[in-house]
Design a protein around this nucleic acid. Structure first.
Length: 827
RNA sequence: GCUGGAGUGGCGGAAUUGGUAUACGCGCACGACUCAAAAUCGUGUCCCGCAAGGGUUGUGGGUUCGACUCCCACCUCCAGCACCA
């Protein structure tokens, strides 16, 4: 009979539904495997062929795992809060909830065509009040533990999205979503103390089976650096003339190179430094106007503008004050300059022009003294260092010759008092101790700005009371749901659209019973996805879940599959998980043991698929033409899973042909096993199994093609061999495998059958082709058993005329023999 | 600039405890079937050469009986971070 993929797919999917094949049981007693896709945001555009790549991979992996006897959890859900959903709704003039429902229905229908084995009884949706009840619950737990706090520091504000953003939502200084340059805006907001977990998140990366580049991206983002805070005493103009008076002001700097302290010849304050609010400083400055004008322009500039000015550094000297280098006791000038960031370290640095490229540039521009204190170990002799001042020993000419640059590496200290002659790395902390500084660790990671001034998100479950301050909504009153509103457009004023709904906002304080107002900001899109993998373990009973009972069975996720989100989602989820670990809700410190990161599928033109470019390929069309199985096999065969590859409609015909040939070959099944195919089938089972385990689906498909090619050449296959072959094909092409199983007269679903076994002994025994080389060059081959001795091998090889010709009658000077592989005769 | 990853046919790519480079597929060419086309099947397809043979894994060196695989230097591409002191 002809291969009719539409009929076959429909029938197979009906069989699976009738058998309820993918229902996950919690307590089967079998070893469990939790296989998870990064759940999608159900966009209005529907799926393109790139989306299912990861889903097909997890589908293969979970079907395979079931056949290997595991109890498998493989669920799917929807990440449906957030700006994109809301913007889509605004544009199409529908309620976000209605838009989300419609989009989900469309997504599910598209996914159904592919034949994925999700357990839909565990479907979740982050916008479901029964779901975000527990998102709010986790927030309140954080509040309880002091990890959620209020702040009104200036934050990143996207004027186009009309909301505040977290650092993670930026690309440089541009809103990641819409590409608008962000502004700084002072706004009352909720912040989560993710920095509290910076160290543990960094350290535990080493325990994870994740791709190196993702771990590296997270290390970069956390940006830990160890250094010291050192206090510089400041003298103002009043005291400059008189003898020592009491300290008026101090400046703390942060440095990772305290070993260069003796070379600090100036200080720089960031324009945002709090000292500029200090009246004492203002009074002492002789150039107040110039300084504050500079600060004003610097602060109003975006960081992009600052960076665009490139290496051309700007700044103003603070006339009338000076700092004292605590090591050399020298008076050094103080500057304000925008190359120093206000939000990192202490907002102030010590300038060491001899050992920092940026400081070197600044010093040259402002004619500041450059004072080298570290030399590379080879360039200075011990005697020279012992004698003290190098300048004096060398004289000005040699000095200028030796020192016309900066040197940023560690080395031998000079001009550093009692530390001269010692190694800079070894003396680092001694120098800190000597000047009374303290050792500190700083991070680039910022706390998570958690408030969004938008409608479509989880309400933050807090009530503001004039008497009691910010009060948690009692746990029994959760969830706090969104009010129905006529207008949910963002206001753009920094107020949430919820603020206008008085009946919702005005409430009573749970603590004192007096009047209270609800928090009107909502949570960011990333909130719901920070814990969803836990919800799948028990999607219908939150109480059970937070009691930790279900978690012990499934968590952590064994294999997590997705792309994008190298930092944001993965770092937020790790943070929440670690918090839940600390309060004993989960029993492991990390949520995702193993991560498989997928490469995207580009359009045929090599560009990203987008509606705007009109190059989207819809999986529905591909499946209608070539069939779901050909589509699945093609996506896995395109290349390595982690590679980004362009779609090729011409190439899919190759896998479609393969599927068709498999179908045709069932007519060649005979009762007699085909002995010649035995070893290859054995090897194929082994190879496909190993490749699935390490996500090398492309070579697994290739091996199945190699086997079919060989079987076609043979012209027949034994029944048992055929049944083994279609079982290894089943995870990749589940529909046709189901049909062939039935055609072969087997009962039940092929997907409930056991994975075929291979015979280890058969792989190792018997004859092998041994390549014969003469002086490293292939001259022929001989067939020998793997156990054959070197003498036997050499004897056989010498019978080959190509070998004797290449030797030219000479006696071999050396013979290298690797049994089962190669014989190299060196002349 | 720093960090991580990668450079193999016309294309996607295979092969790494060092052991037949170019598996598998696409494309292309020729042939069979056909009145013809599509589909299908067969043969060929890294480069030079009629052949024997020689050359070839970004470039240049090195180690080795033997290097896509290891070492050194350089070039290119992709990703993350980027005036983070």
């Amino acid at each position: 009979m002809a291969y009719d993929h539409k009929k076959i797919e429909k029938k197979a999917q009906e069989i699976w539904a009738a058998l309820d094949l993918y229902r996950t049981e919690d307590d089967t007693g079998r070893e469990k495997k939790y296989i998870l896709d990064m759940f999608p945001y159900p966009s209005g555009e529907g799926l393109h062929v790139g989306h299912p790549k990861g889903y097909i991979a997890t589908d293969i992996y979970s079907r395979f795992s079931r056949m290997k006897g595991f109890s498998v959890l493989h669920p799917m859900g929807w990440d449906a809060f957030g700006l994109p959903a809301e913007n889509f709704a605004l544009k199409n003039k529908v309620h976000p909830r209605a838009a989300v429902e419609k989009n989900i229905a469309h997504f599910k229908q598209q996914l159904a065509h592919i034949g994925l084995d999700y357990d839909w009884t565990r479907e979740i949706n982050t916008t479901d009040p029964e779901y975000f009840h527990w998102t709010q619950w986790i927030f309140l737990k954080m509040f309880e533990h002091g990890l959620a706090f209020q702040s009104d520091e200036p934050i990143n504000w996207c004027p186009s999205c009309m909301t505040g953003l977290a650092n993670e939502d930026l690309e440089g200084n541009v809103c990641e979503r819409c590409g608008t340059v962000v502004e700084k805006k002072r706004l009352p907001q909720w912040v989560l103390k993710i920095t509290e977990y910076a160290d543990r998140m960094l350290a535990d990366l080493d325990t994870l089976d994740w791709p190196e580049h993702i771990k590296e991206a997270q290390r970069n983002w956390i940006g830990r650096s160890e250094g010291a805070e050192i206090r510089f005493e400041v003298r103002t103009s009043d005291v400059l003339t008189s003898e020592r008076t009491s300290d008026v002001l101090n400046i703390e700097v942060f440095t990772t190179r305290p070993d260069t302290l003796f070379g600090a010849t100036y200080l720089v304050l960031a324009p945002e430094h709090p000292l500029f609010q200090n009246e004492g400083l203002r009074k002492s400055l002789r150039n107040v106007k110039k300084v504050y004008k500079y600060i004003q322009t610097a602060v109003s500039k975006t960081e992009i503008e600052r960076a665009a000015e490139g290496k051309q550094k700007t700044g103003i000297k603070l006339e009338g004050i000076a700092a004292i280098n605590p090591a050399t006791k020298e008076e050094i000038p103080v500057y304000v300059a925008d190359y120093v960031l206000g939000n990192y370290g202490t907002g102030a640095i010590m300038g060491v022009p001899a050992h920092d490229e940026r400081d070197f540039e600044f010093a040259n521009q402002f004619n500041i003294k450059i004072s080298p204190v570290v030399f590379s170990a080879g360039s200075v002799s011990a005697g020279e260092i012992a004698n003290g001042e190098l300048q004096e020993i060398w004289g000005p000419e040699r000095w200028a010759e030796e020192w016309n640059d900066w040197y940023t590496h560690p080395g031998i200290l000079i001009n550093s008092g009692e530390f001269s002659g010692k190694h800079s790395e070894e003396s680092k902390w001694d120098i800190v101790a000597a000047v009374g500084g303290k050792r500190v660790t700083r991070y680039k990671l910022r706390d998570w700005v958690f408030s969004r001034q938008r409608y479509w998100g989880e309400p933050i479950p807090i009530i503001h009371c004039e008497k009691c301050g910010a009060v948690a909504v009692p746990y029994e009153d959760l969830p706090v749901t969104l009010p129905e509103v006529d207008h949910y457009e963002p206001t753009g004023t920094g107020e949430s659209p919820l603020a206008a709904i008085e009946s919702w906002v005005n409430t009573t304080c749970p603590k004192c019973g007096g009047p209270g107002k609800r928090e009107t900001n909502t949570m960011p899109q990333w909130a719901g996805s920070s814990w969803y993998y836990l919800r799948f373990m028990d999607p219908h009973n939150g109480e059970e879940l937070v009691s930790g009972k279900k978690e012990k069975y499934w968590a952590p996720v064994d294999v997590y599959v997705g792309g994008d989100h190298a930092v944001r989602h993965l770092i937020y989820a790790r943070f929440w998980h670690k918090f839940l670990y600390d309060i004993s809700i989960v029993s492991t410190p990390e949520p995702f043991k193993r991560l498989e990161f997928l490469g995207f599928i580009l359009a045929e033109d090599g560009r990203k698929m987008s509606k705007r470019l009109g190059n989207i390929i819809n999986p529905d069309d591909v499946i209608a033409e070539y069939g779901a199985d050909a589509f699945r096999v093609y996506e896995m065969f395109m290349g390595p899973f982690e590679n980004t590859t362009a779609w090729s409609t011409a190439s899919i015909s190759g896998t479609a042909r393969f599927i068709q040939r498999v179908w045709n070959f069932q007519e060649r099944v005979s009762d007699k096993p085909n002995v010649a195919l035995g070893p290859l089938l054995n090897e194929t089972i082994r190879k496909v199994e190993k490749d699935i385990e390490v996500f090398k689906f492309n070579t697994a498909v290739s091996q199945m093609m190699i086997f079919l090619n060989a079987a076609e050449k043979e012209g027949s296959i034994g029944k048992e061999q055929w049944l083994a072959y279609i079982r290894i094909l089943a995870p990749f092409a589940p529909h046709i495998a189901e049909a062939l199983w039935e055609e072969a007269g087997k009962e039940g679903s092929i997907h409930a059958a056991a994975w075929p076994t291979y015979d280890e002994a058969l792989l190792l025994s018997n004859e092998r082709e041994i390549v014969v080389q003469v002086s490293g060059r292939k001259r022929g081959s001989v067939r020998l058993s793997a156990e054959a001795s070197e003498a036997e091998a050499l004897n056989e090889a010498m019978k080959l005329p190509t070998v004797t010709a290449a030797l030219g009658g000479k006696e071999p000077s050396r013979v290298v023999y690797v049994p089962g592989k190669i014989l190299n005769i060196v002349r």
